[in-house]
């Protein structure tokens, strides 16, 4: 069943996720090359001294990429389900409805997770030559909330897109925007370490919100 669900999701979103994956990895690769070029041209000395004095990661270009990819992923995946209420077909499948929804979300989260992991690997490998391990770790620690925001943004967007009532959808957008703000409070190297646990709790828990939208859909709620 899971295979069949993934098959359908891939037909629906394969193109989007392929392109989005390329964009995400492309940005990670670009940032990797960019910092290497900065190190080549201005010298690693300048790079290190800037990072140590400002405590800022030099990869803020990446900041919103995972979030944009995540939101786009949820729209690509769930907007076609809401188009002419196609979701009715999906929910009519002989499979437990929560599991069905869970499998669809798992599909998106897995792809985003894989892209994030590869991006991390790219970042890690591209900096291993030019940065000492403290800066490298600080940089990855700074990027971690952004990648978690990508997955969390995807889950919030799924909840929003699946909501049949426009009024509730607006309220949900407001809640999602405020919660996602927590992932972007500061860029400082390693500043998120004391509250990483909170992001790691919020992100997976957000997946259950879609059940509310599903329930509203099943009750035929509309404005």
């Amino acid at each position: 069943m899971l295979k069949a669900i993934f098959y359908k999701e891939w037909i629906k979103t394969g193109l989007y996720f392929s392109l989005a994956g390329l964009v995400m990895l492309g940005f990670a690769g670009y940032i990797g090359i960019y910092l290497n070029r900065v190190a080549d041209l201005a010298g690693m000395k300048q790079l290190w001294e800037y990072m140590l004095s400002s405590n800022e990661p030099m990869i803020t270009l990446l900041k919103y990429i995972p979030l944009i990819v995540g939101i786009g992923g949820a729209v690509a995946q769930f907007a076609p389900e809401m188009h002419r209420k196609c979701l009715k077909l999906t929910l009519h499948l002989p499979y437990e409805q929560h599991k069905l929804l869970g499998s669809m979300l798992l599909y998106g989260c897995s792809l985003l997770g894989i892209f994030s992991l590869i991006s991390f690997l790219i970042l890690y490998l591209s900096y291993s030559n030019i940065l000492p391990k403290e800066l490298q770790t600080g940089l990855l620690e700074s990027a971690l909330p952004w990648y978690l925001a990508g997955i969390c943004g995807y889950l919030f967007s799924a909840w929003i897109v699946l909501q049949p009532s426009t009024k509730k959808r607006v309220l949900q957008i407001i809640v999602a925007a405020f919660v996602l703000k927590i992932f972007f409070i500061t860029d400082s190297l390693g500043a998120y370490m004391p509250s990483l646990w909170l992001l790691l709790i919020i992100t997976p828990l957000t997946s259950i919100l879609s059940i509310i939208s599903l329930s509203d859909f099943k009750e035929g709620r509309q404005d």
Binding site: E49, N55, L135, G138, S188, L189, A191
Partner: peptide, 9 residues
Amino acid sequence: FGPYIHLYQ
């Protein structure tokens, strides 16, 4: 008390 990279010059 803020975040600090433990590399010194």
